[in-house]
Nucleic acid binder design. Structure first.
Lengths: 144, 144
DNA sequence: CTAAAGCGTCACATCCATGTGAGGGTCAAG
DNA sequence: CTTGACCCTCACATGGATGTGACGCTTTAG
């Protein structure tokens, strides 16, 4: 498949697909006319890339991951030459775990907010000073 | 507390604290000499902001969230004037949920990789074409 | 054959969270 | 009074993921 097809199937712009290649995340074969020819499995790879990007991993890291292990057609993973990779993989996994935890913390925050909005608890006895501290600032009116 | 203290207590640079204010995420009081005076609870707020940023929410969205509900000293949430906010909160919560799911997908990917690296499975009968498709590309040697 | 659709490269633009530094006040300690 | 530690504003820089557009070649449909 060519870049347009892949873009269509993944919802990722051609520009980005070229960018990913530049970053070493994709290695499409080149047809004699210079066109990029993608393999069917690249659809999965791109989705994978997007997941990892959404995970906050920079392309450089993703490149290293994909470089050592690539998607097979059956969604299987095939290990390639990758010394010290296990350590690396584990480290990244840990990073993601931490990110997930931060997100869950945020969700708890949001839930607390939702609960508060739903049944407003009159907070007991705050001082006037406290009440004033979020007062509007003069000269600040940013467009939303 | 002043900006230096807050920076120290949160590990966030002064620059960023000013930036957050500019984005409407913090509203420190101004002392007569122009210095920003932060409330103790801003420490928690900043942590909260960082979590949400790490969650991938842009400052504009975070501003709207904080704008309608702010941290009390006891970690409680106090709802302020916020029409249609519940919907908004829910939408963001949903977004975060999706992000978490993508991260978990990525983790499964990593786990699969780890398993593969650990006990390499000889993938059965791939065609030569398939095997060739990740062959090195001429003219590509990017510095890592 | 011709036009449209796709592709390629190059390069500049944008957004957002951050960094960095210049130039200049404020304030407390010596 | 002076020095050093903070603070302020302004403004330009950067890095990473993306967008956009120019210009030209290739392939495909009519």
């Amino acid at each position: 498949m060519r870049i347009g097809d892949l873009a269509h199937e993944t919802g990722v712009s051609r520009r980005l697909l070229r960018y990913y290649e530049e970053q070493g995340l994709l290695r499409p074969v080149r047809l004699p006319n210079g066109y990029r020819e993608y393999h069917q499995s690249d659809v999965a790879t791109v989705r994978h890339i997007r997941d990892l990007l959404a995970a906050g991993l920079p392309t450089a890291v993703i490149a290293r991951l994909l470089d050592c292990v690539h998607d097979d057609e059956g969604g299987r993973m095939v290990p390639v030459a990758c010394p010290g990779m296990i350590t690396h993989l584990r480290r990244e996994r840990q990073r993601i775990t931490e990110t997930i935890e931060r997100l869950q913390t945020s969700q708890r925050h949001l839930d607390t907010m939702l609960a508060a909005v739903r049944n407003p608890t009159q907070p007991p006895a705050r001082t006037t000073a406290e009440r004033r501290r979020r007062a509007p600032i003069v000269g600040q009116n940013r467009a939303l």
